[in-house]
Design a binder for these strands. Structure first.
Length: 423
RNA sequence: GGUGGGAUGCCUGAGCGGUUUAAAGGGCCGGUCUUGAAAACCGGUGUCCCGAUUGAUCGGGACCGUGAGUUCGAAUCUCACUCCCACCGCCA
């Protein structure tokens, strides 16, 4: 959520920002509602001041008759207040609904574009394998070693579910353990969070503000609980309504969770395999930091992601997403796409966003600025350490002519084997 | 799931219709004293919203778990909900 004062003072910039993000929110209407709201609020508060004074006066009045007449008069003021209140409530409801839909301001330097085709590749790192045999995709390799079972996944749970088995299951634990250790050394606090969160928490994180948002989430109405799409949604609200000490910033977490997504808008996309499923595991980095540090922190996150990728020796490229291609809470998002030789394509495996104070404002997470002595909202960032997708990338990039798969060196010890080959 | 108790400021804790601008103690910050520290003493100690001057200011409103209600007036009374604690039941 943006600060309404900011919107009032930067009307044109906010409008341009919405246009750049290929969204539509009626800012003129929002400001009109804001105006109405403030006028009415002032009226009601003036009446309430009058009422408070009158009540005090009544408490001092000794004569019964005089008291009665004063009470009668005060009743009239009360009526006036209670007739205006529902109107204010209506205006506020509409106002808030609209305000919530305004996306975060873009960070300077974010390329303006109409769709993902206008994303900007910042750099490519690592050598793509040159293989002298017919390259298999990860599903073909999985079939050889019985690593992924989507047929039974469909039987038990429906489409876009799968079983990760055997060496692939071991590989997942090893991958996460490897990244967890690496990030713990960097000062991240390891967390295993709840994967079900209250609707208030989900709303504050900015992921159910529009109908499209809500369609993407799994929701249990009887319990008023949402399944998280990423543990970011569970870690952010952890410090809601708290004041974090400036000395404790940046406050960094590395969090493991299963993620649940309905994939509502992706019918027909990646239907084969488990690149896009309703349920997957992910290790996520999260940071609460001082506003002046968030740009630096964002770069730090990307640098950590790259270090992890380089240790796995997977070829990848770093992509700065253009204005139209990332979520409302983010001010800038940088993805890492890993090379999948079986598809002859880069595929998104990591995503890192600087959400500035957009989520902190609604979650009410602040810190005391020593210099100004004032309470200010923290900035919040999230980024992928690893998800399950890199496992698939390992299968494709480390495949051998005979169909076996070498294990990246850094994972060999953790896995307990160096190669996946036919038993 | 059942029964009982509870939720008040940074913390402990009093208040159970109008001298509450929320007692008292502790903590914290500032000051006096001191070579320095401690002790003692004095003063201060929230957040959010609206408006005016827009400087560190002033006026008004809201906030005692959350939401409704009763009343001229609610921390205080009524109802619902949430959470916490204890015991019982069940359980990885």
């Amino acid at each position: 959520m943006l600060d309404i004062k900011f919107i009032r003072e930067n009307k044109e910039a906010v409008k341009q920002n919405i246009a750049n993000r290929q969204m539509s929110v009626d800012i003129d209407k929002l400001l009109d509602l804001d105006e109405q709201r403030r006028t009415l609020l002032t009226q009601i508060e003036t009446l309430r001041a009058e009422q408070n004074k009158a009540s005090e006066d009544i408490s001092k009045e000794k004569h019964t008759e005089a008291k009665e007449s004063k009470i009668k008069k005060t009743k009239e003021v009360k009526e006036k207040i209670s007739s205006s209140e529902p109107l204010l409530a209506d205006i506020e409801k509409e106002y808030e609904e609209l305000l919530r839909q305004v996306p975060n301001m873009l960070q300077p330097g974010v390329p303006v574009g109409k769709n993902e085709a206008e994303n900007v590749v910042l750099r490519e790192v690592g050598d793509k394998l040159i293989l002298d045999f017919k390259i298999r995709d990860y599903m073909e390799i999985a079939q050889i070693h019985d690593l992924i079972d989507t047929e039974r996944g469909a039987k038990v749970s429906g489409s876009r579910f799968g079983y990760l088995k055997g060496a692939a299951a071991i590989l997942e634990f090893s991958l996460f353990k490897f990244a967890m250790d690496f990030l713990t050394r960097e000062g991240f606090v390891p967390v295993i969070p709840p994967v079900m969160i209250k609707s208030s928490a989900m709303a504050a994180m900015g992921y159910i503000d529009t109908e499209d948002d809500r369609q993407e989430r799994y929701f249990f109405p009887e319990d008023d609980l949402y399944l998280v799409g990423t543990s970011e949604q569970s870690i952010g609200p952890m410090h809601a309504d708290e004041i974090i000490g400036e000395k404790d910033l940046p406050c960094r977490y590395v969090s493991f969770s299963t993620c649940f997504r309905r994939e509502a808008g992706s019918y027909g996309k990646d239907t084969k395999g488990i690149l896009r499923t309703h349920q997957f595991d992910k290790l996520e980095m999260f940071s609460f930091c001082r506003p002046e540090d968030s740009v630096k922190e964002h770069k730090f996150f990307v640098s950590l992601e790259e270090k992890l990728m380089q240790q796995l020796e997977l070829p990848y490229r770093v992509v700065q997403l253009c204005s139209a291609d990332f979520a409302r809470p983010s001010s800038s998002t940088i993805d890492i796409e890993t090379w999948f030789p079986g598809e002859n394509k880069y595929r998104e495996t990591h995503s890192s966003s600087n959400c500035t104070d957009f989520q902190a404002r609604r979650l009410n997470i602040r810190y005391k600025n020593k210099k100004t002595g004032k309470l200010e909202f923290v900035h919040m960032l999230n980024g992928t350490a690893f998800s399950q997708r890199p496992i698939l990338a390992i299968l494709e990039n480390y495949q051998k002519k005979d169909g076996s798969v070498e294990i990246p060196e850094v994972l060999q010890k953790l896995c307990g084997f160096k190669k996946i080959s036919r038993a």
